[in-house]
């Protein structure tokens, strides 16, 4: 059991030590964006495990971002509490709409989740008294610094503090999602995806499992929304629109949705790619499209599938 976790531990070390090798706030910023995308993609994948392709992440991000910002600004909550509350609010919202939504299958479910996201945007624009309307909310305060035994451990006046916070969140998230997937819960989800009627005949409440996976996935979207709003210090209703969610979907497809490695590889690759392709900036959408097409036609398992095949071959070579 412990051997399996070695790669993960190596990854942890890499992530935690990376800032020392980098110069410049901008690079750290890119890594922060990458980690955000990893968390969002991984949580989207959890929802997909049960067979539902959800595009509601955008809406949950919006909800989480506004909830956190408003709790801190209007109700003087400390950041840490608002952060958790944002996730919980997204969880319960997903639970609420999840039950009716689960009655719809296939692509129409995805469409309904798109409409849900659009509605959150409209609501944020309309409810000016609460959300500041289309102008959004600004001057959202950064988290207070964290002290451990009187020593300042995390300071948020610079990007590095945010980096470490997000790194910890990401590592925790990946661990949690992995444990969920490997557990009975995860196995049940996968079974439901393949043969839900059969599961029902075994007495499994498939709707409950589906809603639960939807709600847990949305929890992570919610906390990411909160992180975003305190990192950027300003949010607008359209910040997490349709296109944003589509990009997360693309990260997942490119990374490969069969393997838990998929979201990490997909999100990291596609977030960092535009930076490496800086001279070809206007071609970025074409590159994305090309990659998508290549995946569909040649690599249905995604990049993670490719990596796993390579490592398998390497393993076999040693044997």
């Amino acid at each position: 059991m412990s051997r399996r976790y070695i790669p993960f531990l190596l990854f942890c070390c890499l992530v935690l030590l990376l800032p020392f090798f980098l110069r410049g706030a901008y690079h750290i910023h890119i890594l922060i964006l990458t980690m955000m995308n990893v968390i969002l993609t991984a949580s989207l994948r959890l929802i997909l495990l049960s067979g539902q392709m959800s595009l509601a992440h955008g809406g949950m991000l919006t909800v989480g971002a506004y909830t956190s910002a408003l709790l801190v600004l209007k109700a003087s909550f400390p950041f840490w509490l608002a952060f958790i509350m944002a996730g919980l609010f997204a969880f319960f919202l997903a639970w609420l709409v999840g039950y009716p939504f689960m009655r719809i299958r296939g692509i129409y479910f995805s469409i309904v989740t798109i409409f849900f996201s659009e509605m959150t945007v409209l609501l944020a624009q309309q409810w000016e008294g609460l959300t500041g309307g289309s102008g959004g909310i600004y001057n959202i305060p950064r988290p207070d610094s964290v002290h451990l035994f009187g020593v300042k451990v995390l300071d948020f006046s610079s990007r590095t503090g945010f980096y470490y916070l997000l790194a910890l969140i990401m590592l925790a998230t990946l661990l949690v999602l992995h444990l969920l997937e490997d557990s009975r819960f995860g196995l049940t989800l996968k079974a439901i995806r393949q043969a839900d009627i059969l599961c029902e005949s075994f007495g499994v409440d498939t709707t409950l499992y589906r809603v639960l996976s939807f709600a847990i996935g949305s929890f992570f979207a919610g906390i990411m929304g909160s992180f975003y709003s305190h990192y950027v210090t300003a949010i607008t209703p359209e910040a997490f629109g349709f296109l944003f969610t589509v990009y997360i979907l693309i990260y997942m497809i490119v990374g490969g949705e069969k393997s838990p490695l998929g979201p990490i590889v997909g999100a990291a690759f596609l977030t960092l790619l535009p930076e490496l392709l800086r001279p070809l900036k206007s071609f970025t959408p074409f590159v994305y499209a090309g990659i998508l097409l290549a995946i569909v036609y040649f690599l249905p398992e995604g990049l993670s599938g490719l990596i796993l095949k390579w490592t398998e071959r390497l393993g076999r070579g040693h044997a």
Binding site: H27, L33, G136, V232, A239
Partner: peptide, 16 residues
């Protein structure tokens, strides 16, 4: 990218 996060990215890049 018509949004605050995009502006933050852009300005960080240019400042660097």
């Amino acid at each position: 990218q018509s949004s605050p996060p995009g502006a933050v990215s852009a300005v960080n890049k240019l400042l660097q």
